[in-house]
Amino acid sequence: MIGSHQGLEDFCPARFFLFLFFGVIMRVRINVFVTLRRELGWKNKIVQIDSEKAILFEVISVIPELANKVFDGDKIRSGFIVLVNGRNVRFLNEGRTRISDGDEISIFPPAGGG
């Protein structure tokens, strides 16, 4: 099974091919905003993880320069907004939030306005 939420109508030959060769591959989109874009030099990336299960900390750690900015040890730095599918992970399980195939992670450094 390639990602539990996908039905047959979402069948993708390329991903099925990857599955045959590598087993379960999870793809997660990471979006960064505000000053992080200039600091990192990109707006979004697709991260692939060779596993069926992963937690947020592991997913972000695939990009070490991002992980250094977002995490202090395994804790999310004060003021950072980290959303998984639009839900702030502080109301999920913080760095241990379970990430599934197809999830979207959005990361904002401290920001405000009005």
């Binding site: 505000v34 000053t35 003021g79 450094p109 401290p110 920001a111 405000g112 306005g113 009005g114």
Partner: peptide, 12 residues
């Protein structure tokens, strides 16, 4: 960081 970084650099 809101009043020293985000608002000065990107505005509202």
């Amino acid at each position: 960081p809101v009043t020293s970084e985000a608002l000065p650099k990107l505005g509202t």
